[in-house]
């Protein structure tokens, strides 16, 4: 780990001011990913601005439930409003990592988790995300956990967050403060696809800080869930995950929210599947057709072709589970 300076911010304005000091300043949340990346030499900040002391409230606002970025994962998953109105989010969080990590990790940090691609972590490997222009050892290497949607020749990594997948389904809005003021970005636009610049993972500009995530009201949010498919029964990253909420009226899908994890460089909002489902009968056949529509452009790599069928099946199973009573 390279040496660094450390500051503890008392407010977001304070944090943003402190972060101006050097080009290699990083904000520090729970540290569950950043500290590991620093040890691995993947992240080499020269200054850390600790933002865990900032406001950690969860409060209703006219725009929805506002969650401060410093809220710990456990606190968010335990919040009665979240559990009642957005159960898919509570379930996504507790499906992730371990209880210890959830006690440490913040909402802001969770969104900024970096990929688990083995070649990203290994400084002996070629990785465009770690060293732009270096090449990608994953494209022809072990890529069982890698992306089937939205990847590029430069990068086939996936985003590892569970929480963010549920938030993508919920039309969450990310509030960002920076030297030039504050702005709101839909979570579905917050993370980027890799394209030719996989090192740029979000729309955050230098010095910008996530300060909150707002969950707009979702009338049918209570009928929602998150299903995570993985290589062991707990404490493993998703191979495929599905976040879904569905509103069935008279046997027809009136509205639906669907997002996939483990398949792309970002939490993958399944807009195509949603469009294919709205107004359709809530049947296994419609669910399968919607899943097919979403995965139509999926591209398998050497080891991850199974994810295409797995994602389709999991989408169908989740929708069947949610509509089981309604259908």
């Amino acid at each position: 780990m390279t040496p660094f300076a450390y500051d503890r911010a008392g407010s977001s304005a304070d944090a943003i001011r402190l972060a101006q000091a050097t080009a290699a300043t990083h904000y520090l949340g729970g540290g569950t990913n950043l500290v590991d990346l620093m040890r691995e030499g993947v992240a080499t900040p020269d200054r850390l601005v600790d933002v865990t002391g900032l406001s950690a409230a969860i409060e209703p606002t006219p725009d929805g439930l506002r969650i401060d970025a410093a809220v710990r994962n456990t606190a968010l998953a335990s919040d009665p409003r979240v559990r009642r109105d957005y159960p898919l989010l509570a379930r996504a969080i507790v499906a992730g990592a371990s209880a210890q990590i959830r006690n440490m990790a913040t909402v802001g940090g969770n969104l900024l988790q970096r990929t688990r691609c083995a070649y990203f972590y290994d400084d002996a490997a070629a990785c465009n995300k770690r060293v732009p222009g270096a090449g990608c050892d994953a494209v022809d290497g072990f890529n069982r956990i890698h992306a089937i949607l939205g990847a590029s020749p430069a990068c086939v990594a996936t985003h590892p967050s569970d929480m963010a997948v549920a938030m993508a389904a919920l039309n969450a809005v990310v509030t960002i403060d920076g030297p030039d003021g504050s702005r709101d970005v839909p979570l579905t636009d917050f993370h980027r696809l890799p394209g030719g610049t996989p090192e740029i993972e979000t729309v955050l500009a230098r010095g910008e800080l996530i300060t909150a995530v707002t969950l707009p009201p979702l009338g049918f949010g209570a009928r929602s869930t998150y299903r995570k498919v993985r290589d062991r029964a707990s404490y493993a990253f998703a191979l495929v995950s599905v976040a879904a909420a569905v509103d069935v009226q008279g046997g027809t899908v009136a509205d639906v929210r669907l997002a996939l994890g483990g398949v792309a460089h970002k939490p993958w909002r399944a807009f195509a599947a949603e469009a294919a489902l709205r107004g359709q009968p809530a049947t296994a056949a419609s669910f399968r057709a919607a899943a097919e529509a979403e995965l139509a452009d999926a591209v398998p790599l050497r080891d991850n072709g199974f994810k295409i069928e797995l994602a389709k099946r999991t989408i169908v199973a989740v929708l069947e589970e949610l509509t089981g009573e309604a259908a």
Binding site: Y6, G31, V35, D36, Q100, I101, M104
Partner: peptide
């Protein structure tokens, strides 16, 4: 918590 991921200064 996992003490290994915790910077003591925090």
């Amino acid at each position: 918590i996992n003490a290994c991921l915790a910077l003591a200064v925090q």
